[in-house]
Design a binder for these strands. Structure first.
Lengths: 97, 97
DNA sequence: TTATTTCTTCGATGACCGTCGAAATAGGGG
DNA sequence: CCCCTATTTCGACGGTCATCGAAGAAATAA
């Protein structure tokens, strides 16, 4: 669950994380619903695949995950990202599908 | 040299195009120097590799290329991108390296 | 302790990607 | 027409990636 310090987050890694349609959908859902678990998002991929995508999002600096009983709710690192790359996440989230 | 209509440009494709460090550098240089050719940017990759990257940027909707004699200067599609994904290119270009 | 739930890790598979040399293309100048 | 210059295309190579089933881990409930 360890997450990179925001100053260590790199732009290409963030862009790569957001460039996958499934991960982009995860980010949009986390934006709409706030903190949420993988499985509660209702996506059709296997748990293994979703866990992989969450890991990419976490390691790139986009989300943070905490441990709550047997589940692991994640949230967007909105404030951190806004400090590091001002306007980037907003532009992505505001973009028309 | 054909370029996608701006309404057909897709966000994952743009993010994928910008997620590569070499292409990100091309975009930053095109931003600083304006319209420019592949070879004039002074990058160390082979012409074949740079041509490949320009193609990815062109097909994703990030740059447009015109034909001028034997060379092919490219430019950022700033206005188109601003209409399609407001604030996105600005956020990427303004981000600290 | 045993079973259940939730998620992660492992291993494999098929697809895609960055890179470059070599060959092809195309315009401009003699 | 031939050559030079700038770029693209082709084919290949090694590496990375998305996907998923199966097995593992970890907390909770019975």
């Amino acid at each position: 669950m360890a997450v990179p310090a925001i100053d260590d987050v790199e732009l290409p890694a963030v862009l790569h994380a957001l460039a996958d349609p499934v991960r982009l959908e995860i980010v949009r859902l986390l934006d709409q619903r706030g903190e949420s678990t993988c499985s509660a998002l209702g996506l059709s991929q296997s748990p293994a695949t979703l866990s992989h995508h969450m890991r990419v999002l976490r390691e790139s600096g986009v989300v943070a995950t905490r441990l709550e009983g047997t589940s692991r709710p994640s949230r967007l690192r909105r404030d951190d990202l806004q400090r590091r790359f001002p306007g980037l996440l907003d532009a992505v989230l505001r973009s028309r599908r």
